[in-house]
Simulated assay, not measured.
Amino acid sequence: MVSGSLIVGLGRSGAGLHLPALRRLPPELRDPMRPVLGWDPAVGSRAETAGVTVVASPAEAATRLDPATTVTHVCMPPRGRATVLAALAACGFRRFVIEKPLAVDEAGLEALLRIVGAHRLQVVPMSQWLSSTLTSRIEKIISSGMLGRLISLTFRQRRPRFDRGLRDKQHPTAFDVEIPHSLGAALRLAGGGQVCDAAWGDLRAGGVVVPRLGSAWLTVAHRGGVRTRIDSDLTSPVRERRVHARFTGGTLTGWYPGSEADHHAQLVVDDGRRRGHAVFLDDALGACVADAYRYFATAGGQESATVTDRLAVNADVVRLLADAKRCAARRNPGS
């Protein structure tokens, strides 16, 4: 069992998603009687957050918990994470769960990885679609060959994000919001590749325009021959997180849970002769947090293939998204 939990960034991600996931952890992974500490660099004060004991700095957190065995959830937006990570590492914190994406560009990624290496930090990226039951089921279908060879993947992520988008100062483009989830899953399912094309669109509401934060799409050519198309629309009136895969011998369509309000996924598999439809529990975020705590509790700070793979996949996500942004900027030089 770890000694404690510290949430850095008490906004939507930290207080709205990570904190409830901590409450769902089994007692063998985290003592439910132990308080959760919180520090919000953006606020810089002791603003109250329900269920969290707020501290003013990493130094104060280190006096309340054993920093070497505390799991620190870095939930602040990706800009400036390397500086915050360095401050935490200087106070002795070594175990981190870091929200997606790791950074908004290659420079930020390299700065973060330098700190990880210099302080020998243990990092588990918060890439819940890699812990998703739906992703796991699709991966097994691909590896089994039951539908033949995988030809293409198509992801569609739609939801209304006007309120947050109009005040968002931290996510520079729509590529940084939803697409890191699906791109990570695509790399897990089809392997590495390169961006072929990409574009973005503005968010428009009530006469206000937020450049590049309304929509985004990209295509990826995987080294094994698979093609992936990802579309994200943050101005849609409906919610949907959908994946469609074409094989030489059939198709499958899956729906990831649309929000934290319901943790069920669906999967339809069609081999041309019969069509199967399954509905199943898929608390991917809770599973990702549990995986991280299980790793920290049992590995004792030792590296593992699973953790190395997650960090590598998420680093590739940042690099590919940086390529996609450059491609989108070339398509529309004035944006």
Rank of each mutant, 00 (worst) to 15 (best):
T306I: 13
I179S: 03
D176H: 09
V123C: 08
S3T: 02
G165F: 09
R204T: 06
V124Y: 08
L203N: 09
C91H: 11
G38K: 04
V269N: 04
Q122C: 11
L203P: 00
V243P: 00
R310S: 10
V123A: 08
D163C: 02
L267P: 00
P333V: 05
S335F: 11
R294L: 12
A86I: 01
G300K: 11
L130Q: 01
V8L: 07
W200C: 13
C75A: 10
P67K: 08
R212F: 07
E48I: 09
D233I: 03
V55Y: 08
L109T: 00
D40F: 04
R158G: 04
R164S: 06
A15W: 10
D168A: 04
L187K: 01
C75I: 02
A50L: 15
H277P: 07
A61Q: 05
R161E: 00
R114T: 01
L189Y: 00
G224D: 09
C196Q: 10
A322M: 05
H277K: 14
W255A: 10
S215N: 15
V195F: 05
V36F: 14
L10M: 11
D168H: 06
C327E: 15
G165S: 08
A329F: 14
T173N: 03
L29I: 11
Y293Q: 07
L187G: 02
R137P: 05
H171S: 06
G301W: 05
A107R: 05
R319S: 04
P35G: 10
L150F: 02
L112T: 00
G191C: 04
R241W: 12
L147I: 01
L22P: 01
V124P: 01
T70S: 11
L213P: 08
A42S: 12
A186C: 06
L22G: 06
L150E: 00
M126H: 09
A107E: 07
A284G: 12
Q122E: 12
L22Q: 11
R274W: 12
L183C: 05
A278Y: 15
G206Q: 06
R46T: 13
V289T: 09
G92S: 12
M126Y: 13
L320F: 10
L281R: 15
R319P: 03
Q266V: 05
R167K: 15
V268K: 06
A61W: 12
D66R: 09
E60L: 10
G258F: 11
T70Y: 10
A61C: 04
A261I: 05
R81S: 02
P26A: 09
H73P: 00
P172M: 00
T72W: 06
P41C: 11
G117T: 06
N332M: 10
R12V: 09
M76I: 15
P172G: 00
S127I: 04
V268Q: 11
L150Q: 01
A221Y: 03
L189I: 05
G224Y: 13
T251V: 14
L17N: 08
G165E: 03
I179V: 00
V208D: 06
E110G: 02
P58V: 07
T251W: 13
A299C: 09
Q170E: 10
V195L: 04
G214Y: 13
V2E: 03
T154S: 11
R159Q: 14
G300Q: 10
A185R: 01
A62Y: 11
S143C: 08
R223S: 12
R159H: 08
G300A: 11
G276L: 13
G14W: 07
H119D: 02
T173C: 04
S13Y: 14
A265D: 07
